[in-house]
Design a protein around this nucleic acid. Sequence first.
DNA 1: GGAAACCTGCAAAGGACCTGACCGCGACTT
DNA 2: AAGTCGCGGTCAGGTCCTTTGCAGGTTTCC
Lengths: 221, 221
Amino acid sequence: MAKVALCEDDPSIRRIVVEGLRHAGHEVVTAHDGREAVTLFAGDDTIAVVVLDIGLPDADGRDVCLALRSAGQVAPVLFLTALGAVHDRLAGFSAGADDYLPKPFDLKELLARVEALARRGRLVTVSSAGDLVLDPARHAIACEGREAALTPTEFRMLAAITSRPGEVVRRRAVVAAAWPDGAMVNENTVDSYVRRIRAKLADVGSPLHLHTVRGVGFSLR
Amino acid sequence: MAKVALCEDDPSIRRIVVEGLRHAGHEVVTAHDGREAVTLFAGDDTIAVVVLDIGLPDADGRDVCLALRSAGQVAPVLFLTALGAVHDRLAGFSAGADDYLPKPFDLKELLARVEALARRGRLVTVSSAGDLVLDPARHAIACEGREAALTPTEFRMLAAITSRPGEVVRRRAVVAAAWPDGAMVNENTVDSYVRRIRAKLADVGSPLHLHTVRGVGFSLR
DNA sequence: GGAAACCTGCAAAGGACCTGACCGCGACTT
DNA sequence: AAGTCGCGGTCAGGTCCTTTGCAGGTTTCC
């Protein structure tokens, strides 16, 4: 029950994979070549996993991956390839891939890996108007290329607020998230952190602002 | 003439396999349970192939595999199992296995597969990101011709960090990888090693730097 | 106007990390 | 057997960042 984007030029392989994914309950969008993949997949933030063939007729799958990444697509990418050579695998990873499957592959294994990637999520995306990305793997936020590192406490706090975009997160909940051990005394410390988080949001040019709801808490809009 | 690591709790099966491998000219090291396997196999970089029983008395073979992987063991892993079910096969692969053999198996087939794996080297042999190359066989890093030798501990540590290029690897994970036996007391020792690794990265002129993320861990960028 | 809630700038304290040096141990050499 | 060397691990001191809280200004609500 996740949305999977598939780019594969070989019709028979494509059919098998699509049927397998659909049968497993996933929604599938397909592209036949690299250009179509970029067009269809780049702006779609509902995609949970991207499956890319490396050997495409019009482009290298890795270039497609890079293009998707630079277009803000943050879904994990799994590469399919007939090339078993190590350096291809490596090039795939350095292009921003999250997993790799050499052809010929077992369909069940592909399904297992796709689902693993979908579960893992890898990134918490906050897409509302622009695409602000919260990256737990790097403890950073990113927006259109620009990136800012967060301290552990800042990150916990922001994560709590972005977990429910648009909604108001109560001050108490923010405190509980930022200080899981139950420590913390001074209320004002929260404000200090909010201030610093706001500064970093501004640094990356985020279209989303950390809005305060007086007497209640904070929300991201 | 390859070194094979075997972990199997059943004495009769173990004896048969060991004799078969030795007869074929391989060197064999054995473990009886998961803990012993991790202890013996994790730090041994001369191992060409690891053969793991999935059903061990003290642990799931897949967990052992994960532990070995995170400890920097890069040899291909072949699973033995009495379970023929597909989902076990898949779980095995997702745990980082390279091949799979259901019991009861023909000794000749096991030998053939072990040798195939030994020849092939390993699925993820050289982990590299950018132009930096990590060579497990020589315990060295190289960058555009220049090369530097790493000590075993340094290598395990760097391997753990390069396994996820760009992402932050938690300090805890780094420690687990560098000291697979769970030893290690002084936190500062990690810093010392990081320092040495940085020096060697600089020696070979690596474009990638070992970046520290305060309060979290390290990442390679 | 006044109080509460919030923002801002700043600075102290403590922790995390870096650095350079040191020492013990085992392996290898002589 | 003694010496040498590389590796693993530790230590002390310094640096820098994170955390925390204060003090005072500003906004909002009654």
